[in-house]
Structures are given as C-alpha cells and as structure tokens.
Design a protein around this nucleic acid. Sequence first.
RNA 1: GGGCGGUUGGCGCAGUUGGUUAGCGCGUCACGUUGACAUCGUGAAGGUCACUGGUUCGAGUCCAGUACCGCCCACCA
Length: 906
Amino acid sequence: MKQIPSRYNPQEVEKKLYEKWQGEGLFHVESGSSEKPFTIVIPPPNVTGILHMGHALNNTIQDILIRWKKMQGFASLWVPGTDHAGIATQNVVEKKLAREGKTRNDLGREKFVEEAWKWREEYGSAIVAQLKRLGASCDWERMRFTMDKGLSSAVLEAFVQLYGRGLIYRGNYIINWCPRCQTALSDEEAPHVETEGKLYYIRYPFKEAPCSMLKAEGVVVATTRPETMLGDVAVAVNPKDKRYKKLIGKKLILPIMGREIEVIADDFVDKEFGTGAVKVTPAHDPNDFEISKRHNLEPIKVMAPDGKMNENAGSYNGKDRFDAREGIIKELEEQGFLVKIEKHHHAVGHCYRCHTAIEPYLSLQWFVSMKELARPAIEAVKKGKIKFHPKRWTKVYLNWMENIRDWCISRQIWWGHRIPVYYCRGCMETGMRKSKIQNPKSKTMQGVIVSKIKPEKCPDCGSNNIYQDDDVLDTWFSSWLWPFSTLGWPEKTKDLEYFYPTSVLVTAPEILFFWVARMIMAGMEFTGEIPFRDVYLHGTVRDLTGKKMSKSLGNIIDPIDIINEFGTDALRYSMMAITATGQDVFLSKEKFEIGRNFANKIWNASRFVLMNIGDQIHRVGAPEAHLRGVLSLADKWILSRLNKTIAAVTKALEQYRFNEAESLIYDFFWHDFCDWYVEMVKPQLIQRNTEYEIRNTEQILIHVLEASLKLLHPFMPFVTEAVWQNVKERKSIMVEKWPEPDKKLIKKKIEADVDIIKNIITGIRNVRANMNIPHSNRLNVYIAPLKKKEEAILGGGIEYIKNLARVEELIIDKDAKKPEASASLVLEGFNIFIPLKGVIDIEKETVRLTKKTEEIKIKLGFSEKRLKDKNFTKKAPEKIVKQEREKSEKLKEQMERTRETLRSLS
RNA sequence: GGGCGGUUGGCGCAGUUGGUUAGCGCGUCACGUUGACAUCGUGAAGGUCACUGGUUCGAGUCCAGUACCGCCCACCA
C-alpha cells in the first residue's frame, strides 16, 4: 500500500512538475504537428512589470484554454512575450538614474538606451519566472520581445507600408502633452478624470467702447484654464447669438498682455454655455485651434514643454502653469477684470503613466490616418468573423471604430522604435521649412526619406547631410502587429501560415481600444486576414470595496504571496470560480481557501482510492473492457453523473463559461463522487468478499477518478498531475485525451432512483440528529413502500441505506404498521418508521412534524390553486399539467400520513 | 451628455433559451475524530430574487419605467 501524506503540499510538487513539463518539451508545438492548430498569443506584459492579479486572471484563462485544447488533440500553441512599454520603462530607468543623481540628458541618448537594455536584461525575466509559477504552458522556445530584431523589422515594414499608402502624415496639431514625461500621447493614453475645478469669468475690455454699449465694459469670457489667456488671439461668439451680434469685428484688449484681439463669429460656440463668448487660444486648445484655422489666426504658444510658461507669457515666463494660474487670477482681480469664479465639474485628461494633468499642446507630430484602416475592421466584426465574448463589447468596439480619430504615434522619448524617417538638411533649407503642415494625402515630400535603413544620400538632392527623426513610435505601434509579428511577419514563415489567424485573444476590456481594435485593423491591413476569431474579455480585478487593484492605491494582493501560501491551483481555481463570464472579480485573501480546500479534497480522494486498490492498479483500464456481471445501482449512477458532467463541462468551456465549468466539476467530484459514491462503495472495498463486485468497483473508482482529474487538469494543473504521477509511472496528464461523454451511460431513471435512496438516508440522518442519537447506536428501521414501483427502487439501495444511515436492521414490508414510540418520515412513496423507544423526544418530534405539515400545506395550496385555474389546464403544455397533478396527489398523500402520525403522537 | 454593468438569505456570488421545492461558498447553530480528508463529515436555521407597472396559464428569468452603486466613452470653453 502506498504511503501518501494526508495533506496536499503544493510547494513540494509545483516546481518539480513544471520542470518536468518543460524538460519533456510538452509546451513546445511545431507547425503542422496536428491537423488542427489552436493558437493564442499572450497579451505581452511590460518588461518592467511584476505579476499582478490582473495578469494572474488573464493568464490562467489562457492556460485553461491551451491545456484543454491540447488534450482535445489540437496543436495548441501559446506564444509568450513581453512588451518594451516605451514610456513606462523609460520612466523606471529615469527614476533609477535619479537615485544616482543623474538625468537622461547627462547620459545622452545612446548611453540611456544602453541603460534601458541593461535594465531589461536584469528585470525583464522576472515576469516570465512568475508566469511559470502560475503554471503557464507557454511555448517558451518562441519567446518574443517587441524590440527583438524580427519584431522591430515588422514595425519598420508596417510604417513604411502605411506611409507608402499615404496613411501616415506629419503635422502641427493640438495633441495631448504630458509635461512631466515631456512627450505627446495618443487620445487613449490621456484618459479623462472627473475633476472638481473652477470656471473663471474674465472681462476683456473694448479697445473703444461702442457708444450704446451697456454697462458691461467689454466681453466676459469663461475659462477653466485662465493661464492660457496669455495666448489668446481672439474672442469667439456664435453668429446667431443676438447678444453679441453687434460686437462681431469689434476690438478688445487682452488684459495683462495688453494685446489687441478681435471678436469673431464661429458656429462652434455654444450660446448656452458660460457667457456665450469664448476666448480663443489656438496653441493650447483643440477647438480653438480649429477656430483659428478657419479664421487665419496665428497661434501663440505661451507654455514650454515642461509645463512652465515661456517667453510669450510676459512676466510669467518661467513660472509653472498652476502657479501662473494663481498669479494671473490675482492680477486680474486687482485690475478689476475678474468677474466671478464658479465651481465647475469637468473631466480633465491625465497621463496614463504618471497621472499628471495633460496639456493640450500644439506641436509637430506623426499621425496615422485611421478612417480607412477602420473600415475593414468594422466589417470583420459586423459580419461575425470576429466574435466578442461577452457579446456586449461588440457595440462598444463598433461605436469607437465608427468615430475613430487619427492616431498620434510619435513620442518624444528615447526608449522604443525610432521613427524610420530621415531628413536631408540640404532640402530642408529650401522646401520643408516653409510648409510646416504637411498635406496628409501627399505621399512624398522633398527631403523627407522614409526607409527601413538609413539612406546613404538624399534621393532628391544627393546630399549626404542626413539625420534621423528624433522621436520613437508609440509602444502600441509594435503591439498592434503582435499576433502576426510574433509568428514571423513580414517574412512568409511556415508558422505564420499554419498558426495564423490565431484562435482567441484573451484580454481586459481596458485595452479594447489601445490594443484589440488596433490589432484587428493591423491584421486586416497587413495580412488581409482577421488576427483572431474570438475575443474573450474578462473583468477587472478589484478589492472588496470595488476599487481597482493597483499599486498606487495600496490594495494589492500579490499572486505570488497567494501561491506561496495556498498553492498555484488554489489561486487559479478560486479566481475562476468567483468570476462569472466577463464580470469584474472582487478579491480578498480568504477567497483562496476555496481552491486550497478543493485541491486538498482531490488529493485525499485520490489518496483513498490508491490506498485501497493501489496494489491492483495494473488490472485497471477502460471500464467497458473490464466490467463484468451486473453493475450496482451506485455504479450506474456515478457513471451517469460522470458522463453528464463531462458533457456539461465541455459545453461550458466552449462558451467561455469558466466558473460554470468549475462548479459543475466541483459539485460532481465533491458531492457526487466523494460524499456519495465513495461512501456507498466503502464497505465493499473493506470487506473484499465478492470478487465480481470488487472488480467493478475498483474499475469504476479509478475510471471516475481519472476522468475527473482530466476534467480538472486545465484548471488545476499541479494537483492533478501530482496525483496522476502517484497512480503509476506514466506520462503527463497534459497529453491525456480530454474525456468524451458516453451518452448511453446517462440514465435519468437511475439518477432519480438514487435521489430517492439519498432522500431516505438524509431523512433518517435528520431524525438521528434531531434526537441526538449517537453514531454508534444503530437503529432498526421499517420501510413500507406504497407501491411495487417503490419496492423495486429500494431493492438496489438497501445496503447503502444501512451503511450510510447507520441502520442495524432494515425491515421492508409493505404492510408494516407504525411501531410504538417511533419517529415517522414523510417521503414520497414510502412510509418509514424508526422505533425509538426510550430515545424519542415526543415534543421535538411533534415540532418537527408540525413544521413539515406547514411546509406541505403551503405547497399543496399553491398546487391546487394552479390546477383549479382553467387557464392553466387549458393553455399550459400537457406535460406540465400532468406533472402538476402528480405533484398535487403526492402532496396530499404526504399530508395525510403526516397528520396521522402527529395524531398518534399526542 | 451618451453607453454599459450590477442590485438574489449575515457576507461574497451562480442562476444558458420563462415551467416542479431559487442554488453554491463563507459565516452561524447542533452533533461528530466511523479505517481518504477537521483544508473534514452529518444535520439544521436563514431568501416576498432593489422598486413599480406590463406581457403570460406561469416571471429571479421577457418588456417599460424608477431608485441606488460602479464602469466606459464624449472637443461645452
């Protein structure tokens, strides 16, 4: 008999098993190794990142799918990798330098990038190691990094292609500027945060007061950012606004600056908001910029890239933007130009990396023209080639895509893919400088060379005085190529041909626009195909108060801590169990006990089976081949339940209903298998007197255990493998075949019969507990089946009742009369009496039965009312009506018997 | 301003096409160390499914509206 510890110890097995899997190459997949490929590309975590619960959830889901599909016989490939995470990594490296008292400028570009690479070498593998602890079955031989040679070449290729199609342009526009990171950001990188701000009303006096002009000696404008007024070039009103009609064309004096500005008319202005007059600051507001273009006004920048006011800001030059705001308000007030200040609730963009309030800022950047790219990506989803799970995200996706705006892709940082654009100084002297805003449609421009490699000399003028654009590309410009760049694109590789399009993308809705939408566009544009068929969007991991788990909030639960304390399987199982499809996950440490306890249960149930029949395991195989004679009721029942469970778990997985799959197998394994089947067959195992029965029981125990382990393996890879290896020396459970349901073995009648037996047992146990009858005290029980049907059911269940309800003698007699001083059970089809002379507590029993009577009464009333309703009997399906009649009759019978018993007690 | 999600026993949550008695985990109470497991077993208590109205023979489930909580999007300064 095998010696197996009575507790599952994850620490002891996890590392060993992972090394075994990896060592045996079980994660590696070659193209063409099966008829059917199944592919997932990992959402690449940031190289600087450490594993958080979001990753744990995300990667657990992927691993479940990958392992499940592998067992189903697919060439199941999970491509791992990491993202260089431009701004995030640059910030981290800069912080490290700061600790050494240095800035990036002290090092210079080349040295700084070297530092960043060093950082990656040192810390970039941390997250990979953590993914391994999570059990991730990635094909590590295919590890990718967004700044790898191959992927970098994909980035260049994509840029050059888009430029060639006229879909990339450079121009001066208002972009989101982070004064702390000192770079441009895309709209997605500057999420709006609801802020309680102020609305300042400022009076701009007339240069020459129009005679009839009211008491107001000027025009009052409202603004949330008064410091930008220094850059005002006009005041705009709605041309239809009667209040201001006469003022159009009048001159105003800009306070503080003393600049002369004009009142202009523009449809954009909302008459209802503020005063109906808008200060126009083209260099610091996107709408004002548009207005200025329509009216040919020259923008004036009053701020420097670091968020401090510049030389155009007069005396405020060099002051921080928020200090300047205060100063300006004070000055305006002193000079009598400040009319009032109102509280104002509005949404302000913030840098998604450092949370600094972004500044809308006029600057020269590169953009991708998105409308044309969006069209096929919208089609692909509308036609159902790509499906979102849950479905509701389809609408969110389409809505964003249909209102898509151009994508600012240049970043003023050093860590990333340098923009493959070169400028010729010779040509710049002449042409380029004069036209700052380049026409998006024009494909080429003199002195601007877009090339994957640095050109020797300018194709226009032959000069070799050439330099590369300083900027790097948005991190997401490499991410959006991920599903095919990782498989070799732009090369036409075998992998690309075989594994692409990928099967499913698993990610968080937070990056639906950042990443998912853009991958679909890139896929359609560069490969002409969808990048994946299904998109599964899981929820956000939150703490119990509903706050998103984040480092800055300090409410993090570290997955590695959980793994150390509860085990990887506990982490995985618990997280999936409490997560309904696509719903947010609310975590607390205690919740991991669910998984830990379940893993231990699996361990112990297996331990029980092995301890009892481990020495006969060689005789065990597929049950059909070895079963002999007649199967017991319990045998047939557990096989029926098993096959039902196999079918249901598989279906749930197909629908991405992970929590349902888990709970199905949890209920089956714990409640059906452990609580009932194992308990039912225990005596047979211990006695070992009937060769046939023992053999069948052994076969079935092992068969059900193994099938359960297989069903559990994708969710709990370690404990299932540990048990698998305990059974006998053999290959990994990873390569076992996913069970298929045998419909012939699913038997309704058997399950119903066992339910009745279980009810009898529970009923007797109930009486025992109620009367405080000790376990050692075996009782005699009289059962009088009311009809032949019931008698037949009892036949197969006598032993189970005797053993599980601690019954000494079970007297089955359909004419059995109630013995003196007995408790009586109220069950459908049976009269059950438990003689309890000297033990029975008449009072307690009366209370118990009275309560039962009340319950039955309520149900019966409801049922009878229903049956009296002609609408019901006429309109409801016959089957339902018949059911209701039967139910009513049974209830009446029960009622009768319970009352009878009650009478006899008093 | 638009869109989405949630509201089910003390707590945390399931509940797929409307159909017997609304499930699960934790917690609570009682009993228990019976030859896998106290990370366990047995039994019990605990719910007018947020509210209002509608459709239907029948609604936790479908429809309309309301309230509260949360999220996403949006160029009203």
